[in-house]
């Protein structure tokens, strides 16, 4: 892969022949040729041609950690918006509390945020989430921001390098949901710093060597304070 620039592709762009290549995610095959199906970044890895989307809704995968916002409390479950095309169902059996029938509103109500895990995605794309896992709970305090779900891997960095960097320099608690929602908690100045860095990562997500530049940015911020 070239190190200069990531190539942007648009839907229906010709990417290669079926011979010698495998059609990966974000592509489709017609008459022995591989085409891109969405606006995205081209990535070729071991004979697989993939298109990583630039924009679009979050495509839920089982086991992902996400941040959801409760839309509705029903008698024995909640409907939670996780930025997927469909609202996700959170059943009372999937929360750590002992909830009586019809008492769901006492625990989570419209507008509350939760950290959750995707429990199940079925063929009809009906989504179920759960709070029964380590470190999953209702969010109290802090700040929630949003980036494109396709840019989440950039924010986390290789083996979590980018996110570790942000935590180290700002002493904030940060939780990145795979659906693009990010929860940040800390003192006000630190939150502003993290937000600034996140916006920079979002803007320059196509560039190489981003982690190093973010480190410089954060170091500079610290000097300014001193």
């Amino acid at each position: 892969m070239s190190q200069e620039k990531r190539e942007i592709v648009i839907p229906s762009q010709f990417l290669g022949d079926v011979e010698g290549n495998n059609a990966g995610r974000g592509t489709f095959i017609e008459n022995g040729k591989i085409y891109s199906e969405m606006l995205g970044i081209l990535s070729k890895r071991s004979n697989y041609i993939n298109v990583i989307p630039l924009k679009g809704r979050y495509d839920a995968i089982e086991g992902d950690f996400v941040i959801g916002i409760v839309q509705e409390a029903m008698a024995s479950s909640w409907l939670v918006d996780i930025n997927a095309p469909y609202p996700a169902l959170l059943h009372v059996n999937e929360v750590p509390w002992d909830v009586d029938f019809g008492e769901t509103k006492k625990y989570l109500n419209h507008g509350d945020s939760v950290m959750a895990k995707i429990l199940q995605v079925d063929a009809e794309k009906k989504l179920q989430i759960t709070l029964k896992d380590r470190n999953l709970y209702k969010i109290r305090g802090g700040y929630i921001t949003y980036i494109e779900p396709s840019k989440v891997p950039r924010l986390i960095g290789k083996k979590g390098s980018m996110i570790a960097l942000l935590k180290k320099y700002t002493r904030c608690r940060i939780f990145v949901g795979q659906n693009g929602r990010i929860w940040i908690d800390g003192n006000e100045g630190d939150i502003a710093k993290v937000l600034h860095a996140i916006r920079k990562i979002e803007e320059e997500s196509l560039a190489f060597g981003l982690t190093n530049r973010i480190e410089e940015l954060l170091k500079k911020d610290i000097k300014d304070v001193q």
Binding site: I10, S12, F28, E37, L39, P53, G56
Partner: peptide, 11 residues
């Protein structure tokens, strides 16, 4: 549609 990142066979 392309700008929204919706999968398309063609524009």
């Amino acid at each position: 549609l392309a700008d929204a990142g919706i999968p398309l066979k063609d524009i």
